[in-house]
Amino acid sequence: MLVSRHLENFLALYEARSTHEAARRKGISQPALTSSLKLIERAAGGELFTRSARGLEPTEAGTALHRHALAIDQHARFASMDISTVQNRLGGRIRVGVGPVLAVSSFPDVVVRFHREFPDVAIDVESGISSQLVDRLGRDQLDLIVTARPTRPMSDAMIGLPLFRSEMVVVCREGHPLTAGLPVTPDALTDYSRVGFTEDLEFEEHSRSMSHWPSERLRPILQTSSISVMFGVLAATDHFAIVSHVLVPKARREGLVRLDLTEPLWQIEVEAFCKTSLSGSRPIKALQSILSDDPPLTFE
């Protein structure tokens, strides 16, 4: 099904050198085979065979097409085998791991859109920090994870599929003292305590990369993997948090505001990671498309 039937008919003719024999091998009538040959000759712009006492003889163009047709046929057969293997491995279920930020922001909509396209494929979703998701992916306990690129190297058997860039922003409670003097400088943040995510190694890495960002003075007073806990603490205190921009709508619903800073913070590349052998499957490609900026996800 992955190769044009006209190309398959051409290969049958090339190998049999007889319309009668090629039609027999393909299980079609000779008129249908002749019609197929004429169609592919029109596409090629010239004759592919000439007739002789010995049967059909390929022209120079026919010989050239045969080389390419064989390669196309071989690749298609390998693709068919890979797809069959992937589908058998996935069965009717795909296991996905996402970070806590996506889990409470855009991913529920992703699941809904995925099920519209694959109503018969069950999807298991679990949330966790990046290091946990990478470990579970490596142990074949997950088929796909969506996270910022881990700081440690990934296995050669894994592939990263680019999704979108996540801008980091500062959120705090409405009426926080910092909201009175906008825009806010990085130094002003150090007068207050930060609430951070558990094992947030990316924060340390990116904060150190900024030339004058006071990362050493921004160590978290509280670490959590729960967005609800984080936002609850922020709403009741003068603490602040540095989070992905995808959380801003939820933060607003919880009575929090995004601070206007004198300089932008860093961006994080969010990717989907899976086994290379699974990356070409339709469910994986569909999830990548839904999660990426094309079509865009609406965060604000």
Rank of each mutant, 00 (worst) to 15 (best):
G128F: 04
Q30M: 10
E41F: 02
I145L: 05
R113L: 01
C172P: 10
Q267V: 02
T34G: 04
T198A: 03
P31N: 08
R17G: 07
S279W: 02
G128W: 01
D82T: 01
S215V: 12
E15H: 13
F197Q: 15
T50I: 09
M1F: 07
R24D: 01
R152G: 02
V110C: 14
I129H: 09
F114M: 11
A122N: 14
P264H: 07
S29E: 09
P249S: 00
L218Q: 10
V98Y: 08
P58A: 00
L261K: 14
S209D: 08
C274F: 08
R116Q: 14
S106M: 07
S4R: 14
P220C: 07
D156M: 06
A12N: 09
S209I: 01
V184Y: 10
A16D: 09
A236M: 03
S4T: 05
S80E: 15
S127N: 00
S18I: 03
S105F: 08
P177M: 01
D73L: 06
E8Q: 15
K285E: 13
P150A: 02
L37T: 03
G55R: 13
L90N: 13
A64E: 12
R77G: 05
W213H: 15
S18F: 05
H206V: 05
P58E: 04
A272E: 03
T276G: 10
G175D: 09
L297A: 13
I28R: 09
P153I: 00
D73K: 13
V171D: 10
V229P: 00
S277I: 03
Y192C: 06
E174Y: 04
G181A: 05
K38S: 05
M81I: 04
V121C: 13
H68V: 03
I227D: 10
V3N: 10
R136C: 03
T190F: 00
H176E: 08
P31F: 00
A79I: 02
A43C: 00
L7E: 15
V110T: 15
R252E: 14
E8A: 10
I123R: 07
G55P: 07
L90F: 04
A16I: 03
L161I: 15
G97F: 04
L142N: 11
F231E: 07
Q223E: 13
W266L: 05
L102H: 15
A236F: 05
V248T: 13
A23Q: 09
V243K: 05
G62Y: 06
A64D: 06
M81S: 14
I28P: 08
A64L: 00
Y14M: 09
Q74Y: 12
R67P: 01
E117W: 08
A180F: 04
L133V: 02
S292Q: 10
L234H: 00
D156P: 14
K285L: 10
